[in-house]
């Protein structure tokens, strides 16, 4: 797989997992942070810096997966603005 595809796949996986956070605040933060991080690093080139970022991304993906599970175990009521936007 080319590096470009690798990065794209990682990006999609990170976003898909972030969307699963139960907590509104953690979910919005994770999605926003992933998008901003990829935007910040879009001109990183193809060297070691990119490889480092990719492995960092994979580590974060694992963290998000575990934390999503925990957030789904201890649910709370939805926030008032979440209920508003659904109506």
């Amino acid at each position: 797989m080319s590096t470009r595809n690798q990065v794209l796949k990682l990006y999609k996986m990170l976003l898909r997992e972030s969307e699963k956070f139960e907590s509104y605040n953690f979910r919005s933060y994770a999605v926003r942070r992933v998008k901003d991080a990829f935007r910040e690093n879009q001109n990183l080139g193809n060297g070691d810096a990119l490889k480092e970022k990719i492995s960092e991304g994979h580590k974060n993906l694992e963290i998000i997966k575990r934390q999503v599970l925990i957030s789904q175990m201890y649910k709370t009521d939805r926030l008032i603005i979440e209920n508003m936007s659904r109506n």
Partner: peptide
Amino acid sequence: EFSGRPLY
């Protein structure tokens, strides 16, 4: 009337 948890 409001439903849901307050914002923090």
